[in-house]
Structures are given as C-alpha cells and as structure tokens.
Design a protein around this nucleic acid. Structure first.
Length: 465
DNA sequence: GAAATCTGTCATCGC
DNA sequence: TGGCGATGACAGATT
C-alpha cells in the first residue's frame, strides 16, 4: 500500500474542517535556509510515533479501496419454451358450466328447432375438437394417427355397414343439422373484413356459394346460438323432425344440386359411413352429457360465456367440411402428419373446392393452435419479465442501501484520515521546534516508501488555506 | 355504448 | 418448393 508512487495524502482539502483543532495554519515559521524537502523524522523524539501514525494512516487509507462485496450476479431464469409448452392444458382447459345453464334455454327454444338443438348438442367446440393438440404436436400424434388412417383406408375399402343411427348418430345429426344451418356458413365467414379470402377457398366456390344460399330450411333459421339442453336426454334420433330424418341421401341439401360426385362413389350413405368414426370420445361423444362440460368457442372471436356449451354449434370448418362433404374429420385434416394427410387425400377423389377447403381447414386449424401457443408464450413471457423486474428492483434497492452504508463508512474513514493527518503534522517540528503548518506543507510518500514533508507551492497543486 | 379482453384468421417471415 | 411454426395485425364476439 505504501509503495504507491508519489502517494499524496488525500482528503486534506476535503476534511479541513475536520482537521485537528490544534492545527495552526501559517503559524509555522520556516527558516530562510529551508530547502523545502526533508526527510521526516529526523532527530525528532516523536519520530517513532510518527512512523506508527503513518503506518496507521496508510492502513486506513487502504480502506479506501473498498471492495464492495460482489452482488449475487443476477442470472435470469429463462425457461425454455419447450418447458412451457409442456404445460398441460395449454390454455384449453375445459370450462365448467353452471348447472343453471342447462335449463336456461327458454330464449332459444322459440328460435331454433329441435333438430337444430340436437345437432348442436352434438356439436363441438374448438377445444373439444383439438384437445389433444395441446399435448401432442402435429408430429407427435399417438399411434392412433396411423391407425386412424388405416381405419380410413379400411372404411374406403369397405362400405361401412354400421348402423348410422346407432353408431354414428352425431354424424347423421351433423349432416342433418347442416340442412338448417347453412346460414352459419355465410354469417360466420370468419374472414377478416376487407381482406380477400383465399380464392381457393370453397367459400368462393360456386358450389359452396350455392350451399350458403340456403339459410332457411324446414322453416327453421339457425345461427351460432342454437339449441338448448332441454332435449339432451332424448336420443339423437328423436331430434329429427319427420321431414329431416336421415334420408337415404343425406347430402341432398336443399339448394345443393351440383355437388360433384367422386369416383369413390360418395353416396350420401357412404359419406356418412366415412365420416369420422368416434375415435375421440370427447369429440364424438354419443351422449350429450359427455359434452356438457365442453367449452364452446364462437366461430370467430371470444368465448361465449354464459351460453350453455351444449348450444355450441359446429365449428365453421366443420360446417364447411360438412357442406362440401369432406369424407373425413376435421380432426384428421388438422392433426394428421403431412405424409398421412397427403396419403389420406389420395384415398379420395375430391373436387378442387373440396381440396381447397381441406387445405384451408388444415392451415387454419394449425394456425389456430399456433396462435394459442403463441399467446400463451407471450403471457408467460410477460409474467416472467414482471418477475424479473421485481427481482431487479429489489436488487436495486438493496444496492442503494449498500451504497448509503458504504458512503457512511467512507465518510467516517475520511474523518479518521484527516485526524491522523493532522496528528502527524502535530508531531513535525522545524529546527526551532515549531510545528509545520498543515496548510504550507503536505506529506508525500515516494516509491521507496519514504515520506517527505513537501512545502506547498503553486506548482505542487496544493492550495494554502 | 365504450373499452378491454378473448379468440380466430390472415399475412408474412424464417426454417 | 411446399410445409409448418411463430407472430404481428386485424376484426368479430364477448365481458
């Protein structure tokens, strides 16, 4: 410490007020022959005391190199997206509907037919449609995905002889519902106003246009809010009015006359048979009770809180798929790996509008999930950043407190230094036994460790009192 | 009725 | 080159 070159004792000017009261500026009478620099502690009796005081002084000045304790380095605890993504439920939790909703159906009874109710009871929501998406990526489908495809192939090969009424009631309902809900397709375009819908979209296809023109079927008008839970205990079949009971040609929608038939002989019966088998109970549940807890999602936009989930209509894409007689489920369209999806497409001969719709559904479905994930991540990031902000603010306050403490300690040390400095001067006497003025001299240490008493001169940078 | 929020969709970019 | 995920922007629905 004392080896510091040309160490000039500091604090003299800053702590003058704290200098030893005994210090008498200008009272040191220097002899004319004084050459200015002389080693201290010459023949003075107080030489040893001075050394001790100097050592003490130097020891204390070391304290000025305050070694501020290293703060706990802040290491942001970033969590990988993957870990976040692993969270279950990914924003698609099932909403529980108060039981009261089950009976609050009066407003809907007048507007919608029993058939529509049944159909919509059996409808799905986005969350009911894609719950597994929250846990499995498109490429992480369970083994059921190929199985589904194999099943699909099997279905193509073998005309399903399963009773539609018993095994596929929801399917029949859906097709029948579509008789009455084609207006949804129009009113619920889902396309941003002002934005051009994809030209390839079936919505623009002539056939689709024809479909959408039929908004009032069997004397009933449907909208997204249809149905109620009053008839949930009825069997699916019972929801069909006589005029809309499953007919041999379920695709014979009123107003639909130009549907292109496929080489797979998309007879209406077969189409129904090919419509997704109940691979996903939550989605294809045959019992309405199974769907009571299923949340509903409006065809576009926020949740329809306060509406009985059973009132949920089919999703827009489902309705479109139904309208264009897509022979497989929206689930498959969205969730199958691309290879399986393409293979699935090859199993059927579909019109351009059908293919366009299928690809639109797939794109929208995937993008919907991606958007949900994106928003989830965004919210999690916000929460994480807020936590980091709180932590940093806490650290800032802690550092500010430490700063105050160090400043206080530094002031104490400075005062101590000033006292010692003055004390050292009090030991220095000239040849006449007079003390040197602290304002006319200062102590300076050379690299060799010697301390000299240097007179104040303008060149020395020291200013007299 | 306005504002906030939620959610689906589109456009775009990068891989 | 097409598919796909991510994301900003927009708009409708809902609160």
């Amino acid at each position: 410490m004392c080896s510091t070159a040309n160490y000039v004792l500091p604090l003299r000017r800053t702590c003058e007020a704290l200098a030893a009261p005994g210090g008498k500026c200008g009272e040191v009478s220097m002899s004319a022959g004084f050459q200015g620099v002389r080693p201290h502690g010459t023949a003075d009796a107080t030489g040893q005391d001075m050394d001790l005081a100097w050592q003490e002084l130097m020891t204390i000045t070391d304290l000025q190199g305050f070694d501020v304790p290293a703060e706990n380095s802040y290491e942001p605890q970033y969590h990988s997206v993957e870990s976040m993504g692993a969270m279950a439920g990914y924003g698609m939790g099932v909403r529980h509907v108060p039981a009261a909703f089950e009976l609050s159906t009066a407003p809907y009874e007048e507007a919608y037919s029993e058939m529509g109710q049944a159909c919509h009871h059996l409808g799905t929501t986005a969350e009911a449609l894609y719950p597994h998406i929250t846990h499995l990526g498109p490429r992480m489908l369970p083994a059921s995905a190929p199985t589904q495809l194999a099943c699909e192939k099997e279905q193509v090969k073998n005309v399903c002889t399963t009773s539609r009424a018993t095994n596929m009631p929801w399917t029949a309902h859906r097709f029948n519902m579509h008789h009455s809900s084609v207006d949804d397709l129009e009113s619920d375009s889902g396309l941003s106003l002002g934005s051009s819908p994809p030209l390839a979209s079936p919505e623009d296809a002539p056939s689709a246009t024809t479909l959408y023109q039929n908004t009032d079927v069997h004397g009933f008008t449907f909208s997204n809010r249809q149905s109620n839970g009053l008839h949930q205990t009825k069997g699916p079949q019972s929801h069909f009015p006589a005029a809309s009971q499953p007919q041999p040609h379920l695709y014979s929608y009123p107003g639909v006359h130009s549907y292109p038939s496929s080489q797979h002989s998309f007879s209406n019966e077969q189409s129904i048979a090919l419509t997704p088998v109940p691979l996903q109970p939550h989605y294809h549940s045959n019992t309405l009770n199974d769907q009571i807890g299923a949340p509903e999602v409006s065809s576009r936009g926020g949740p329809q809180h306060g509406i009985n989930p059973q009132l949920s209509p089919l999703s827009r894409d489902e309705r479109r798929a139904t309208a264009l007689k897509i022979p497989f489920s929206v689930d498959k369209i969205i969730n199958l790996p691309v290879d399986d999806f393409n293979e699935l497409l090859t199993l059927y001969t579909m019109s351009e509008s059908q293919l366009a719709l299928v690809r639109d559904i797939r794109r929208r479905g995937k993008n919907k999930v991606a958007a949900q994930n994106c928003r989830k991540r965004k919210l999690e990031n916000i929460v994480q950043l807020e936590e980091e902000l709180d932590q940093l603010q806490g650290e800032k306050e802690q550092l500010a407190q430490q700063r105050l403490e160090f400043q206080h300690s530094l002031a104490i040390v400075k005062c101590h230094l000033t006292d010692l400095y003055s004390k050292m001067f009090s030991y220095l006497k000239d040849e006449h036994g007079q003390p040197y003025s602290i304002d006319e001299y200062f102590l300076q240490q050379t690299p060799d460790g010697k301390v000299y008493l240097v007179p104040q001169t303008p060149m020395s940078g020291r200013q007299p009192c």
